[in-house]
Amino acid sequence: MSRVHVTCTINGDPAEFLCDGGQTLLDALRDEVGLTGAKEGCGTGDCGACSIVMDGRLLCSCLVLAPEADGRNISTVEGMATGDDLHPLQQCFLEGAALQCGVCTPGFLVAAKALLDRNPDPTETEIRYGLAGNLCRCTGYDKIVRAVQAAAETINES
């Protein structure tokens, strides 16, 4: 079976890769494109560690078949910082100690950015429900929620 040629945009840059028809976008990003920021924590859409944004929609990339990405615009954690400037979420996660082992962090950052893009001034409850698709087993979520609140403030002030 010949492989599928996918042409898309990843983090603002044109990209193309070959994948299998049944390969997930997560595997394609990690194994074909070499972007390993998105992680596989479950493979069933229950942990959010593989979160990416495709055409403006937050997704678990483990539940997307890679050929579907053809012609799409994909954002991953690797594209969040602008040059040396971290996104406010990244900065607030660092300053607020919102990560311990860090394996869920890329997914949280991508999901939190999608949340703030949609709702720039979320309540604590909105943050908690908005991030309920991302599991963290280290932090108890406290510092993650606070970091998202701090980032929202930073973004809204600027």
Binding site: M1, D20, G21, G22, Q23, P67, E68
Partner: peptide, 12 residues
């Protein structure tokens, strides 16, 4: 996991 490589994707 089954042989995902053998699966075809179509987008009508």
């Amino acid at each position: 996991d089954l042989m995902l490589s053998a699966m075809r994707y179509a987008s009508p």
